[in-house]
């Protein structure tokens, strides 16, 4: 689709604004001019909390093994690894588990030795 010059210029300006905001919220970027720092902090926490909740839901075993360490570890991981556009929530949860293994926080093989004594 061919767009007018005005529109593509508007897209460019908007892209810069939005990228700056997400960078501040997700990747420790500076707070863009005109925004309330406290509000940015609130939003940052809310986004992190939502992302953490989804990772917990998609990887309960990891969260379970980490116990109380889950939250601080996830928060450290998240700021180092903001979610890339186009990535999936499941990939995020998997990448977090991988990150934990790489830093020795999670046992390397969680392939459950699922031994059921008897179930039927």
């Amino acid at each position: 689709m061919i767009e007018g010059n005005d529109l593509s210029a508007a897209r460019k300006r908007l892209a810069a604004q939005q990228a700056e905001l997400l960078n501040a919220l997700l990747a420790k970027g500076p707070v863009p001019t005109g925004f309330d720092e406290q509000r940015i902090a609130v939003e940052r926490r809310a986004l992190l909390s939502k992302r953490r909740g989804i990772a917990r839901m998609l990887g309960p075993a990891v969260a379970d093994e980490l116990g109380d360490r889950f939250r601080p570890l996830f928060d450290a991981y998240a700021v180092e690894n903001p979610r890339r556009a186009g990535s999936r929530a499941r990939e995020d949860a998997a990448a977090f588990a991988e990150w934990c293994r790489a830093s020795g926080e999670l046992s390397v093989n969680r392939k459950a030795r699922w031994k059921f004594w008897q179930s039927n």
Partner: peptide
């Protein structure tokens, strides 16, 4: 999404003419 990042949430848009033109398109 913006700048290659995904916020994981619904972010408000600036209520400017630029943003409106882009949204409309």
């Amino acid at each position: 999404r913006a700048g290659g990042l995904d916020s994981g949430h619904l972010m408000p848009v600036p209520r400017t003419k630029d943003a409106l033109d882009v949204l409309v398109a």
